[in-house]
Amino acid sequence: MDAAQALVMAMQTWGIIGGLVAAVFLTIGMDRIDEDARGAYIFRPLLIPGVLLIWPIVLWRWWQIETEAAGWAGRYRAVRGWYGVSVIAMSIAIVAVVITGFAVRQTWPADAEPVQLSTGDSQ
């Protein structure tokens, strides 16, 4: 119960920090790093949930763009190489969990009879 409460509080904290990041990023940060966003405001509220969820990545990318830490070539390096690993891992995991699920599945023990092990005082 304590762990569950701590988890819920941690999620709330995550969301609150995300809200602060969203407020700063969507009002100030965006105009600094993306010229296509200048003068475009209607779409910005759409981005709030995303910032709430992945604000650490948002801060990391914002810092990268501000400091020009990332080279231009990275954008064009398609990550198709991960595809094989991802789908094989997913396939194996699904097959494993489905088989495990069937293996532990129980059927109602309709044939099991109650067994009296000792008699009571009132019998």
């Binding site: 993306d34 296509d36 779409f43 759409l46 981005l47 995303g50 990545i57 990275g74 990550v79 789908v87």
Partner: peptide, 24 residues
């Protein structure tokens, strides 16, 4: 929530794609 094109440009397609590998 990261499906808008802004996120593609901001995160760069490789980062965005990696994030979206979460679908598996």
């Amino acid at each position: 929530t990261t499906s808008h094109d802004f996120w593609l440009k901001f995160l760069t397609p490789p980062v965005w794609k990696r994030l979206h590998y979460l679908i598996y």
